[in-house]
């Protein structure tokens, strides 16, 4: 009935890798944000699965904090993407290139 903790870790690692793949390949800033969200939620799965495994609640409580912080991060990120759109008329992350080394 109970699922072994290693399957949860496999799931979260798969989710994390999908998110990382999205971050590396997507050019749309909003898709980038969603991919980062996948990576954060992969960590949340880990935290909750390990909390169950270790029998303490630390991980679950931290997962709640992590969700709140992810929401705050999205709020700031959407604001920045909005001013990006106003200035560059696009949300493609490869368009703003005024600074290059």
């Amino acid at each position: 009935m109970t699922v072994g903790v290693e399957y949860y870790v496999l799931l979260s690692m798969a989710l994390f890798s999908i998110g990382l793949f999205g971050v590396l390949t997507r050019r749309n800033a909003l898709m980038f944000l969603m991919s980062v969200e996948l990576m954060l939620n992969a960590a949340n799965i880990n935290l909750i699965a390990f909390a169950f495994y270790h029998g303490n609640l630390t991980g679950q409580v931290f997962a709640l904090f992590a969700m709140a912080l992810a929401a705050a991060e999205v709020a700031v990120g959407l604001g920045i993407i909005l001013v990006l759109y106003r200035n560059f008329r696009d949300v493609d992350v490869t368009v703003p290139t005024t600074m290059r080394w």
Partner: peptide, 24 residues
């Protein structure tokens, strides 16, 4: 704005990696 975007994107990515590290 460009600087803010780049800082935010790398920051969001690295905080996701950091959180995953914490979970491990």
């Amino acid at each position: 704005v460009e600087a803010g975007l780049k800082y935010f994107l790398i920051g969001a990515l690295s905080s996701a990696i950091f959180l995953y590290g914490i979970s491990l």
